[in-house]
Design a protein around this nucleic acid. Structure first.
Lengths: 102, 102
DNA sequence: CGGGCATATAACCACTACGGAATACTCGTC
DNA sequence: GACGAGTATTCCGTAGTGGTTATATGCCCG
C-alpha cells in the first residue's frame, strides 16, 4: 500500500506516534489504542509491508519498532509547499510590520 | 474529509502539484491529468471542502488556486519524525567517518 | 431566447478497506 | 504432549470511494 494511503488511517498514525517512544509489543499497542487485537495486528501488517515498522521476535511476543525512512517520501512531497506557507507568513509579517509603522 | 485521507488520492496530490504553478481551470486540469471531467470535478470538490483550494468564477470557467494552509497539519505531524531520520543520517555520517579513518 | 461551452451533480457500479468474531498458529512451561 | 499466552489470519458484513455515463446548471453570444 502506498505511503500516503497507509497514513490515511488514524490508528496507523497513532501506532507510529507510540513507536516514537520505543518498541512495543502488540498487546501494549492494543491497550494504548483501545482497539481489538486483530484490528491492531492488521494495521501492523500494513505498516510492516510498507516498511514503516520492524519486528523483533521475543518468544511469543512480537516487538514492533519504528522505521521512519518511508516518511521521507511524504516530507519530500511536502517540500515544495513549504515555501508557500513561508511566503504567506512573510506576507503576514509584512502586513503586521506595516501596521506597526502607523 | 480529513487532510490525510484527501492526500491519499494520487490524482488529488497531482492537482495540488499543478496548482503550485498558478491557478488553473477545470478543463486545463482535465487535460493535464488525462482524466475525465466529472472525476476531476469530484476531486476538486473534495479539495475545496478540505480548504485546500480556492475557486474564482470567471464566466463559465472556474479557476482553482492553491491554498496550502491545511498542509501545515501534515507538516506538524511529520515534525517529530524529522529528528529520527536526522539521527539516522548522523549515524550514517559517523559510520562513514569511522571508515574514512582507516 | 436558443445554442453551445464549461462545470457540477446524480445515479449507478465495482472495488476495497475496515471492523468484529472465530479460528489457527507458535512458543514456552508444566 | 497438553495448555495457555501472544499474535496472526480467515471469514464475514458493511460502508465508503472512485470511476463512468447521463443529466442538470449557468453563462456568453448570436
Amino acid at each position: 500500500m502506498p505511503t500516503f494511503e497507509v497514513l490515511a488511517e488514524p490508528s496507523r498514525r497513532k501506532i507510529l506516534d507510540l513507536l516514537r517512544d520505543g518498541e512495543r509489543s502488540v498487546n501494549e499497542l492494543v491497550v494504548d489504542l483501545r482497539a481489538s487485537q486483530p484490528s491492531v495486528s492488521k494495521h501492523l501488517r500494513v505498516l510492516r509491508e510498507a516498511g514503516m515498522v520492524n519486528v523483533r521476535v521475543d518468544a511469543q511476543k512480537r516487538c514492533y519498532s519504528l522505521n521512519p525512512t518511508p516518511l521521507a517520501e511524504v516530507d519530500a512531497w511536502l517540500e515544495p509547499y513549504r515555501k508557500f506557507w513561508n511566503t504567506r507568513l512573510d506576507a503576514l509579517e509584512r502586513h503586521l510590520d506595516a501596521r506597526s509603522q502607523q
